[in-house]
Simulated scan of single mutants.
Amino acid sequence: MLVQIIIALGIGLVAGLLDIIPMLKDAKTKPPAYRYSIMSVFATWILLGLVIPFISWDVQPWLKGFIVGFVGMAPTMIHAYGRVQNFPIALRILVHGGVLGTLVSVASDVLFKLIK
């Protein structure tokens, strides 16, 4: 179980990095509060990386990941929409969360099967 938790943390770390890399290029031109948004998104993916693999729903792993990633990024989307009032950006955050959640779920499913 400890190995699975470490793998899940690693997957969450990678997912968080994938999500914040595009944000980092804007960090110097944005207000200082933007850095907190970056840290928040990163922490969210660390948490989702730990949560998604251990949810046991009777659905395909990709669907479980999409649903949890989509819903898990809803608070970030609400915060971003409140800041910029741009619906396409808000929608992109949700879709990106679903896709990244799918990748987290599928990667953890494959890696957990390999260590058994």
Rank of each mutant, 00 (worst) to 15 (best):
S108G: 11
G97A: 09
M1H: 15
L91S: 09
F66K: 05
Q4A: 12
W45N: 15
M77I: 03
P61F: 03
G69I: 04
V110Y: 14
P75A: 13
P32D: 01
Y81S: 08
I38D: 09
S105V: 09
Y36F: 09
K113H: 15
I5Y: 12
W62T: 08
T44E: 05
S56M: 02
F42Q: 07
D19F: 13
K64R: 15
L48I: 06
A107V: 07
G65P: 05
D109Q: 04
K64Y: 04
K28N: 06
G97W: 06
I38R: 05
I6K: 08
H96Q: 14
G72Y: 03
T76W: 10
V71T: 12
M23Y: 10
P75R: 11
A90M: 08
I5G: 01
L63G: 08
A80R: 08
W62L: 11
M1R: 07
T29Q: 06
L48W: 04
L2E: 14
I7N: 03
I52C: 02
A74R: 00
I67L: 15
F42I: 10
G65N: 10
L103N: 08
P88A: 03
W45L: 13
I67E: 10
G10T: 07
A74G: 02
G10A: 07
G69N: 04
A80L: 09
G12K: 03
P22K: 10
G16S: 06
T29A: 14
G97S: 05
M73K: 12
R83P: 00
F66T: 06
K30W: 06
S105E: 04
W62F: 14
A8W: 03
G101P: 06
I55N: 01
D26S: 12
V99E: 10
A107D: 00
G98N: 13
L63P: 05
P22Y: 11
L111T: 11
S40W: 11
F87Y: 02
T102K: 03
H79I: 08
M23T: 06
G98P: 12
Y34N: 13
V110K: 14
V41P: 00
A27D: 08
M73P: 00
M39Y: 14
W62V: 15
K116S: 13
M39C: 11
K116W: 08
V99A: 13
A80N: 12
I46Y: 05
P61K: 02
Q4D: 11
P61Y: 04
I78G: 00
A90N: 12
